[in-house]
Structure formats: structure tokens, C-alpha cells
């Protein structure tokens, strides 16, 4: 079931900038990576879906509600963690998150209970009674996540949640997001320009560029094998490629690597391995590593071609 649908969604800002350009995509359950470079339209899409920004053209629904007319119903059932700092410094995390729970519509008692629960889930303990102004960046990110989660939303929108975090903080935050999606059963839409992070947590990917859909598919299909073997050598790899080509195997050298087309050998991948080994020995060339080349997420943005069936 699609929780979020857009149809030819378009947003043009008064200055003439087109942030979204006819975006059509269905988003289902799970952890969804919304990837694209800075300025690709990720934040604009989230704001339109929250009903905070009117679209110029096209339609959208979130949980079957229309953001343009039923924004309040949507905002009751979704959580939003903005990219930027958004916390008042002179109040404790407990007080702030409980207040935000009530503004989400929870009664006072439930707001207090859920605040305690959620702060524990994001890993804030004794320090939750201290003023937020004294928190580290990592702790502030946890409070931002907690306020988005406190009213038990069906869908969580996280805009660049690892911004400003050190590597350990990043790991923690990604672990938390994964847990929210898997254990809490909440659909998480994570907007990020860091493909490496998205790769670790998302089950499904929506890639946008210049406000257009580049591709939407399960993460695995973005990174499947390409049928190519990558051979890295210690010195110039040109001679190796030539000798392999002499054997009837398609091989292209690029500096100290050779890309070999496994299928072109005809008699299976082991024959290709043997050929590489034999020719390297003959050339007295040290092979550093051999691996199956996989599609990389970055490839998406290198050649901007919308794959067939992109709107599935």
C-alpha cells in the first residue's frame, strides 16, 4: 500500500526556480531513502507533503489525505525532523518534548508518559532534565528525533538527520533510524545527500535530481552485480588488457585497473579468473585485488537516465 503518492507534482518558486518538476512517485512502507544532491528538491517535497508549502501544480496524498486541504489531519499523524537547528536552549528536553507532544494533540498525561518513553528510546537519560542549550550536537539531534516521534506518528520525515554529527554519532543515529523502521513499525522517509548512509539503512530508494524522479526501486537493485570483473594491479594495466583482448576477452584498461567483461569469455567466470592469473604471471604483474563490479548509487547521478519502469 502506498502511504504517499505524488502525481506530476510541481513547485516553482516566485524567483523562477523550479524545485519540483512533474514528480510522480509512490512511496510504501519501511525505511525509504530520499536521495539527491543538495537542491534536488528533497526538502521542498517534504514541506509540500506536510502541507507547509503549496504546490504549483499536480497532486499529492499522504495517508490518503490531501496536503493542500487536509494538512492538519496529516500533521497529526506524521513526524518531522528538520535539517536545521530548531531547539530552544533555555528549557529541558523533557519539558520541550512533552510540550511538543501536546501541540501534536496528545492529552497531558499521555504526553508525559510518551516523552519519558521516547527520550529513553533515543538514548537520553539523566541529561533530559538539563537545559538543551548545554547539549552536544549528538544529543540535540536525539531531541529533534524525539520530538518527531513522541506522538507515535505513522510516517516520519527526517531531513538530513546526520548533519553535523561525528562518525560515532552518525552510526548511532543511523542505528536508531533503522530500529524505528524495523522494530517500531513506523515508515521513515530519510532525505539525504549522503548515499553511503542511505545504503546502510534504506530498503527502498527514491532518487531525485533537479526536481525530477531519477529512479525508484528496492535498494538491492541499485547495487546489483554488473557482470564485470574489476582487476586492480600494482603497475600500469595496459599490457594486461591487451593480452586479455588477445585471448578474445573484452577488457579495458584505465590506469592501474582493468575492467573485464565476464560474459565475453564464453566459458564461464572461472576461465576469466584463470586467464587474468595466467597473463598477470606472464607479465610479472602483481594483482592487488579482483572483484565483481557492482552498480553504485553514485552511478545514478553520473548518467542522468531515467530507467525504464521508473514509476513502479
Amino acid at each position: 500500500m502506498a502511504l504517499i503518492r505524488t502525481r506530476a507534482l510541481t513547485k516553482r518558486y516566485p524567483g523562477g526556480v523550479t524545485a519540483l518538476d512533474g514528480l510522480t512517485v509512490d512511496i510504501g512502507e519501511g525505511v525509504i531513502g530520499l536521495v539527491g544532491a543538495n537542491g534536488a528538491g528533497k526538502s521542498t517535497l517534504i514541506k509540500i507533503l506536510l502541507g507547509l508549502l503549496p504546490s504549483t501544480d499536480g497532486q499529492a496524498t499522504v495517508l490518503d489525505f490531501d496536503p493542500a486541504t487536509q494538512g492538519e489531519r496529516i500533521r497529526e499523524l506524521v513526524g518531522y525532523m528538520p535539517e536545521h537547528d530548531c531547539l530552544p536552549p533555555d528549557i529541558s528536553a523533557t519539558e520541550f518534548v512533552a510540550h511538543m507532544a501536546r501541540v501534536s494533540g496528545l492529552p497531558a498525561g499521555a504526553a508525559r508518559e510518551r516523552t519519558a518513553d521516547v527520550l529513553r528510546h533515543v538514548g537520553l537519560y539523566e541529561e533530559r532534565y538539563r537545559q538543551i542549550g548545554g547539549y552536544s550536537t549528538g544529543m540535540k539531534q536525539r531531541v529533534k528525533l524525539a520530538q518527531a516521534l513522541v506522538h507515535d506518528p505513522r510516517v516520519l520525515f527526517l531531513d538530513e538527520p546526520t548533519n553535523g554529527l561525528d562518525p560515532a554519532g552518525r552510526d548511532d543515529m543511523l542505528g536508531l533510524i533503522e530500529r524505528i523502521g524495523r522494530d517500531f513499525g513506523i515508515t521513515v522517509v530519510v532525505a539525504s545527500h549522503l548515499l553511503g548512509e542511505i545504503e546502510r539503512i534504506a530498503g527502498w530508494l527514491v532518487a531525485i535530481d533537479n526536481g525530477r524522479l531519477l529512479r525508484t526501486a528496492p535498494l538491492a537493485s541499485f547495487t546489483e552485480r554488473t557482470g564485470q570483473l574489476l582487476v586492480e594491479t600494482e603497475e600500469e594495466a595496459g599490457p594486461l588488457a591487451e593480452r586479455l583482448t588477445g585471448r578474445g576477452i573484452d577488457a579495458i584498461a584505465d590506469g592501474r585497473t582493468v575492467v573485464v567483461d565476464i560474459a565475453s569469455a564464453g566459458d564461464g567466470e572461472y576461465a576469466v579468473y584463470d586467464a587474468v592469473r595466467d597473463e598477470a604471471v606472464a607479465l610479472r604483474l602483481a594483482v592487488i585485488r579482483m572483484e565483481h563490479r557492482r552498480h553504485q548509487l553514485e552511478d545514478l547521478f553520473r548518467d542522468e537516465v531515467v530507467a525504464p519502469g521508473a514509476t513502479t
Binding site: L50, L52, G71, E72, R73, R75, E76, V78, G79, Y80, P82, H84, D85, C86, L87, P88, P89, D90, M100, V103, S104, G105, Q147
Partner: peptide, 18 residues
């Protein structure tokens, strides 16, 4: 003032109010 200065408003406006 603090809601504006510390950019807390998006958190309010992403909740069921106008």
C-alpha cells in the same frame, strides 16, 4: 522571540495547527 530566533516554528507548523 525564542521560537523565531531558535527556529522552533517549523516544529509547531508541522503539527496539527495553522
Amino acid at each position: 522571540v525564542n521560537d523565531i530566533r531558535h527556529r522552533v516554528l517549523p516544529l509547531y507548523f508541522s503539527r496539527p495547527i495553522r
